Amino acid sequence: MNATTPSTRASFSLPSIVAILAAIGSFMNGATLGLILAVVAIIFGIIGVVLSLAPGKRGGVISTFGIGAGLIGIIAAVVKGMMYLFG
């Protein structure tokens, strides 16, 4: 490595971090907020996957996990809502 080339480390993108936090939050809340957070996790997960394709960015696996957990969070929110209505 020569002196003119700066050393850059790959960093996680903000959308990938938001996706995983929103996915986790979707399981910890009620039906309405859980559904909203699950949708946020999916949207930011998709953005995170796209951004992870750029050199110097990481977070593709975390974003993909956020999308999957967001989908499961939607199912969990629907089940919670149905239990509230019929339980």
Results as ranks from 00 to 15, higher is better:
68 G>P: 00
17 I>L: 15
39 V>H: 03
86 F>R: 07
39 V>T: 06
31 A>E: 15
42 I>H: 08
53 L>M: 12
13 S>D: 15
74 I>R: 05
73 G>F: 02
47 I>L: 15
25 G>L: 03
37 L>H: 07
71 L>Q: 00
68 G>W: 00
49 V>N: 14
7 S>E: 15
15 P>D: 08
9 R>Q: 15
31 A>C: 13
73 G>L: 03
30 G>L: 10
85 L>N: 08
15 P>A: 04
41 A>H: 06
83 M>V: 07
41 A>D: 01
6 P>M: 10
77 A>C: 05
25 G>K: 01
8 T>M: 14
58 R>D: 15
28 M>K: 12
33 L>V: 11
22 A>G: 04
65 F>M: 09
57 K>M: 08
48 G>P: 09
21 L>Q: 12
49 V>C: 14
68 G>V: 06
44 F>G: 00
27 F>R: 13
70 G>I: 01
40 V>Y: 05
38 A>Q: 07
71 L>I: 10
86 F>S: 10
77 A>G: 05
83 M>I: 09
87 G>N: 13
38 A>K: 04
12 F>W: 07
77 A>Q: 10
78 V>Q: 03
60 G>A: 05
29 N>Q: 14
61 V>S: 01
42 I>G: 09
17 I>K: 06
19 A>C: 06
11 S>M: 14
20 I>C: 02
37 L>N: 12
15 P>T: 10
24 I>V: 06
9 R>N: 14
23 A>M: 01
32 T>M: 11
74 I>N: 09
45 G>P: 04
